[in-house]
């Protein structure tokens, strides 16, 4: 579904991504982890072309992201994305946030879009919050609306860029629960996160990045039981000590 091949990227002189290759198969959940500044967020933003790659190739469902012939809006409409800071549109209600792209991109009718928005809000446990503005929602609720917004386009895959990093601890689980249920429904997911509990329960594979390079790309159990790279061992020992 998602193939990342030998991708490199520079910010000026600084190389943020070094020859990264990995893939996400249909229905697979891949967690990308690693220390801050390791290039995880940059890599996931390359998948839907929010960041440009300088070398290598990324294809999503056979479509090359970097090709000048590719219509990025069309491609992005098929890939859902959830951001660290939620990025709900503050001047729109929860329902309007979800309806915007279906109305403008898929040209759905207002009723169809609204009905679908309400279904999705129910799915993320927020039926009663359709007409609230983001300012009147907690962080966890905002992130669940953001997930519903991404799902409204019926995506073939979902990208999560540190979806729980900006949340208070007591709100992390409500978001992870929604993500877990998505994964159980067979959604193809690429998830940048520090939540190792989520990774150990839900992920099929774990990709570990450090200093812009993929250091380890293993099935979940292999990663947690006997990681091959020293750097991943160190990372895990620090993170799992508590």
């Amino acid at each position: 579904m998602i193939a990342i091949e030998h991708v490199s990227k520079w910010f000026g002189e600084f190389q943020v991504l070094k020859d990264c290759s990995t893939s996400v198969a249909k229905g697979e959940v891949v967690v990308v982890c690693g220390p801050s500044g390791s290039g995880k967020s940059t890599l996931i933003k390359c998948v839907n072309g929010l960041e440009r790659i300088d070398r290598g190739e990324i294809t999503v469902d056979g479509v090359s992201v970097a090709s000048p012939k590719t219509s990025l809006p069309k491609l992005r409409a098929r890939i859902g994305m959830v951001f660290q800071n939620f990025e709900l549109y503050p001047h729109m209600t929860a329902a309007e946030n979800i309806m915007l792209a279906p109305l403008k991109v898929l040209r759905r009718s207002k009723e169809t879009a609204r009905t679908r928005a309400l279904e999705l809000l129910e799915r993320v446990g927020l039926s009663d919050f359709a007409d609230r503005y983001p300012a009147n929602l907690s962080g966890g609720q905002q992130q669940r609306v953001a997930i519903a917004r991404a799902l409204a386009m019926d995506p073939i895959a979902m990208l999560f860029d540190e979806p729980t990093s900006a949340l208070d601890p007591e709100m992390i689980n409500e978001v992870l629960d929604v993500m877990t249920s998505l994964a159980q429904d067979g959604m193809t997911m690429m998830v940048v996160t520090h939540e190792m509990g989520f990774a150990s329960k839900v992920a099929h594979r774990v990709v570990f990045m450090d200093q812009g390079a993929i250091q380890e790309d293993s099935p979940r159990d292999v990663f947690f039981d006997r990681p091959t790279s020293d750097r991943a061992q160190l990372f895990l020992s620090k993170i799992l000590r508590h």
Binding site: K45, R76, E87
Partner: peptide
Amino acid sequence: RQGQIMAGLATGLPYGAVMRAI
């Protein structure tokens, strides 16, 4: 915020629509 533009683009809205609606 730049993130608002990214969020709009990520849902498949063209740049002009992101400007107008968001």
